[in-house]
Write a protein that binds this DNA or RNA. Structure first.
Length: 1009
RNA sequence: GGGCCGGUAGCUCAGCUUGGCUGGAGCGUUCGGCUGAUAACCGAAAGGUCGAGAGUUCAAAUCUCUCCCGGCCCA
């Protein structure tokens, strides 16, 4: 044995795979050597193309949890993969800084209950400062997650949606809308909390626990038909006060409506509800006299009863469309009467129905939700408090049918739990419904990878609702519209410069594009000379982030990178960023084009039991905490491997540390195994190449087979990545590492490597060349998923063998499958061999013949084609099956008897093994048994695989066994890497440290030194 | 209440487009085996009313309908 066998030190490649240590080391390496920065710079200068990218900015109102981490892993996957493919991708961060979520978070921090208290106690200026402080705090948490997770996003180039430059560019979108007549003032229905005296966003309405069981009036009333004084519409509501703002009745166009005679009147309601409603109203005597389709009721005028006490309603009544019946699909014909009264000033659907038809919206409310003078006798009363008055007025007029109370689920304010009220307020809109056709067309051209999210997005877009972009809040991009106090003329500014030029008094001191600074600027009206003041709104924060493609880049960059090739965000962004990006881009460019060519909507993260992660359930897994305890590589692998990216992931920490560890650990140990052997033989990857091996004819079938499998792996993996099937992509890679490499290839060549015979050095170098290529390729393919492990192996194995390689795996190019290395026929042959071997094992097991015991003969009964595959690889077959000879046959030979042979079969494939063992086979088997025990002992006593033992002593073997063993002692010495093996009758013969061991239920003693 | 997605082994997921032979894989459990790269791996066992019901069909996890449960979004 050479001295080299004693060197087993592999610097920094620990015998155990310890990802946390390794990742820390690599993080430091990246940091010290500026790898992230170098990569970005390098690709900017040297690329084969550009793939655009805009970061979907996380809202800085909280800390990231595992769901966010998953999203970031997918983005980083894209970046590393595309970079290796030779693309330049501007992977720059971005932060969503403004809006209600941030305000609410800061209100909480300041201990303020609502907006009014906020303005009184804190004031706008200080509030803005606090908001900025808060976002900086959260941003640090996000950056830390990116750092730990190994996300190579460029934080230096991050965009911040609250900065003046950004807001100016956002204003340019509005300018485009303004010029096209798409930006308008109008009414919009918002949820309003009477307790907090503030409007709520739709997101707040949807907060968990906001739906509560409440008690409300259940009111049946009737409206008289104008054309026939004996006919009435029967209507039900739980909000009597909305009768004050009523302007329409709605029926379902396709439903059948009945005229029911009750006393001397005819009531109209949907046919299928006649019986239950009459039962509920305790009316026994009634008769359906006629049925008519809902459609036929359209346009009927009804007598609005409160014209005398609500003066504005008397005026509205003259409008040709007011107080008439309309047809709407949203009318529910399975509850109440199937006739719905509509109050566009107090309901969203009502509002849209009115807007669609040009029906005026009646919303006589002040800021405290009290009725104004327009509501006549109801003025100055809080809206909800008029319920009883309304009922009384109906009773007076003989229109009340029944009033009771009802318990039902109803949205309440998430803070104060007051019942919410919907009411129309003056707001600003983007009339996106006017460009809806273009928007939908643009969206249809986009690749979504999965049908579900695509349908969801498109069907949402087809609703084509106008977009209310104004918010009555503080911390947001200001709406740049100034309105004349006198003549109500409006003007829109689109830059800071324009604003300052127009200002009557130039701003002094600190000035930024936020409240309260912008509010102090007034203009002189060009039309009438009056004073123009800013409309006191900020923009919807979704408008803010939706402006990012134009706002975050320079003009040149925008031309180059937008539309981007690919974007990805959570499925919750269908109505959010994905939507606003699209709308704003269509407005900006006037083209039916989305700012992205492909969009992957990701599923969100849930807990191990499939429940939504929420603060109240306490099941939130914070990304920072996860990454302190668990490996980033393993987490990334787990999150991408477990399920499809569109599926909701049930995040389970126990699962995380099982299979994913095993896979990565196997890759680690394979690499270690390779390096250990390769270094021993001074393998030089630049010298011992395939070409070299091929010329010397040293590449054998197992190598060719492995290389062929590798090509298929590269191809499948890349295709799956292209299709965003990350989970399947990783299954392909996992299979290559676990099955192809670890389970099959290494055992095929292990024996050839287990020697230092100079005669076979060439063959060993050929194996190293093969392993080197396969493992290095796998390491490269893993890089987008497990950047730490890939980088570590790249440096400690491949760069160690060839210091001329680039300093980081990220500079490697993406492998391409090479057709000439593919060999389908060989792959099929190997499938046959492996099947045959597996059957042989199965047969052995049934006769309790250990695999390490050599057998004399195997007979394979199989079709010709299969036998040929075996014959071509006979040496391998014998080695793997551990038999001396093989015979092939079409039918079972006669000499095969049940007594001496064991068999296993599958379909047309039968394998029979000769179970008879002569003395020589018994001896060799015994030797292998003993060798196994010595090996176990070596490991136990801390010897490394390449250490050479001086002597191995075995004592107290039975006499017969000693005889059988004698001829194999030399072979055994080689197998266990010992200079000599000694046999003794009893332990006492030699002074040694004996270790007891079992051999077929008898005690023996082994000692090594 | 509406729309979308899902329900297959103890757990996590394939299979369903285009119906067809005993419904798969991994993890976990038990037993046995292999192994000086490995927390790998191999063999066997236990474990399934393919959410429920109905329909179409010679034949349904797969197609159709109804219902139940979970999730998401919207009311």
């Amino acid at each position: 044995m050479t001295a080299k066998f004693k060197t087993n030190s592999i610097p920094n490649l620990n015998i155990e795979y310890r990802p946390l240590e390794l990742e820390k080391e690599i993080r430091e390496f990246w940091q010290e050597n500026q790898i992230k920065e170098k990569l970005m710079e390098f690709k900017q200068e040297n690329n084969n193309g550009i793939t655009g990218w805009v970061e979907g900015p996380p809202t800085l109102n909280g800390i990231p949890h595992v769901g966010h981490a998953r999203g970031r892993a997918m983005k980083d996957l894209r970046y590393r993969w595309k970079s290796m493919q030779g693309f330049y991708m501007p992977f720059w961060a971005g932060w969503d800084c403004q809006g209600l979520p941030v305000e609410l978070e800061v209100e909480k921090l300041l201990g303020v209950k609502n907006k009014r208290e906020l303005l009184e106690r804190v004031g706008e200026e200080r509030f803005i400062q606090e908001c900025k402080k808060a976002i900086m705090k959260y941003q640090r948490a996000w950056v830390e997650v990116d750092r730990m997770l190994g996300v190579f996003i460029d934080q230096e180039k991050a965009y911040w949606t609250y900065l003046d430059d950004y807001i100016e560019k956002e204003w340019q979108y509005l300018k485009r809308a303004w010029d096209q007549g798409l930006l308008e003032e109008g009414y919009y229905v918002v949820a309003y909390c009477p307790g907090c005296q503030t409007s709520l966003s739709s997101a707040e309405v949807g907060y968990e626990d906001s739906y509560r069981e409440v008690e409300d009036p259940s009111l049946y009333f009737k409206f008289k038909l104008a054309e026939d004084q004996s006919e009435y519409f029967l209507v039900w509501t739980t909000m009597p006060f909305t009768l004050i703002t009523d302007t329409m009745l709605a029926v379902h166009p396709d439903a059948e409506y009945a005229k029911v005679s009750v006393d001397n009147e005819k009531w109209i309601l949907v046919k299928q509800r006649v019986e239950p409603v009459m039962q509920e109203l305790n009316i026994e005597k009634y008769e359906v006299t006629e049925t008519v389709p809902g459609k036929s009721l359209e346009g009927k005028k009804y007598e609005y009863p409160f014209k005398d006490i609500v003066p504005k309603q008397a005026e509205l009544d003259k409008h040709p469309l007011v107080h008439r019946v309309i047809c709407e699909d949203f009318v529910d014909v399975n509850t109440a009467t199937g006739v719905v009264h509509l109050a566009p000033g107090n309901g969203e659907e009502d509002f849209f129905a009115a807007q669609k038809r040009g029906v005026p919206v009646f919303a006589p409310f002040n800021d405290e939700v009290e009725f104004t003078a327009d509501a006549g006798v109801f003025s100055d009363i809080f809206a909800r408090d008029t319920d009883e008055m309304v009922v009384e007025e109906l009773r007076k007029r003989g229109l009340l049918v029944e009033v009771k109370t009802v318990k039902h689920e109803y949205p309440t304010c998430w803070r104060s739990h007051h019942k919410l009220v919907w009411l129309a307020r003056r707001e600003y809109f983007l009339r996106t419904e006017k460009i809806n056709e273009k928007v939908v067309q643009a969206a249809e051209k986009v690749e979504y990878f999965y049908e579900g999210p695509k349908n969801r997005f498109l069907s949402f877009l087809k609703e084509g609702k106008p977009w209310c972009i104004s918010r009555e809040r503080v911390w947001g991009a200001p709406l740049p519209v100034w309105k004349c106090e006198q003549c109500e003329a409006k003007t829109l500014v689109s830059s800071k410069r324009e604003l300052i030029e127009k200002a009557i008094e130039k701003p002094q001191g600190h000035f930024e594009l936020h409240k309260p600074w912008v509010d102090r600027v007034t203009f002189k009206c060009e039309k009438c000379g009056g004073t123009m003041r800013r409309e006191d709104y900020v923009l919807d924060t979704w408008h803010n982030s939706g402006a990012s493609p134009y706002a975050r880049f320079t003009k040149e960059e925008f031309e180059k990178y937008v539309p981007t090739d690919f974007l990805t965000e959570g499925i919750d962004q269908t109505r959010g960023w994905a939507n606003t990006l699209l709308l704003e881009h269509v407005i900006l460019t006037g083209k039916s084009e989305a700012p992205y060519k492909a969009f992957l909507f990701q599923g969100l993260a849930q807990d191990a039991r499939g429940r939504k992660m929420s603060k109240s359930l306490g099941n939130m897994i914070e990304a920072n905490k996860l990454l302190q305890k668990y490996s980033a590589d393993i987490s990334r692998f787990y999150m991408l491997r477990k399920c499809s990216p569109v599926d909701f992931i049930n995040f389970d920490l126990q699962e995380l540390s099982r299979r994913p560890y095993q896979v990565l650990s196997t890759l680690y140990h394979l690499s270690r195994f390779f390096l250990q052997n390769a270094e021993f033989d001074d393998f030089d990857p630049q010298k011992y190449t395939f070409e070299w091996a091929k010329q010397l004819n040293e590449l054998k079938n197992p190598d060719l087979w492995l290389l062929s499998k590798l090509q298929r792996t590269i191809e499948d993996y890349t295709t799956r990545l292209e299709k965003c099937e990350f989970n399947f992509a990783l299954a392909v890679l996992e299979d290559f590492v676990i099955q192809t490499l670890s389970r099959l290839y290494v055992p095929m060549v292990r024996k050839e490597l287990w020697t230092d015979d100079p005669e076979t050095l060439g063959r060993r170098q050929a194996i190293y060349a093969t392993l080197h290529h396969a493992l290095k390729t796998a390491t490269t393919l893993f890089n987008p998923i497990t950047p730490y492990l890939s980088e570590a192996l790249y440096r400690k194995v491949y760069r160690r063998l060839n210091p001329e390689l680039p300093e980081s795996v990220n500079f490697e190019s993406w492998p391409n499958p090479e057709e000439k290395m593919q060999n389908k026929a060989l792959e099929e042959d190997f499938q046959t061999i492996l099947k045959c071997v597996s059957l042989a094992y199965s047969a052995r097991q049934s006769a309790k013949l250990k695999r390490r015991w050599p057998l004399n003969k195997v007979v394979v009964v199989a079709p010709d084609k299969l036998c040929k595959a075996l014959k071509d690889n006979e040496e391998l077959l014998l080695e793997l099956a551990n038999v001396k000879t093989v015979e092939y046959a079409q039918t079972m030979p006669e000499y095969v008897s049940q007594k001496d042979w064991v068999s296993a079969s599958e379909n047309d494939f039968q394998v029979v093994l000769n179970a008879q063992r002569d003395e020589s086979l018994l001896g060799e088997g015994l030797m292998r048994d003993l060798a196994r025990r010595v090996q176990a002992l070596r490991k136990e006593l801390g010897y490394t695989p390449t250490d050479v033992l001086n002597a191995v002593h075995v004592a107290e073997l039975e006499e017969e066994n000693t005889k059988l063993l004698k001829p194999y002692l030399k072979e055994m010495a080689e197998l266990v890497r010992a200079k000599k093996v000694h046999l003794h009758i009893s332990c006492e013969q030699v002074e040694a440290e004996w270790h007891e061991s079992q051999l077929d239920e008898k005690k023996i003693y082994v000692s090594i030194s």
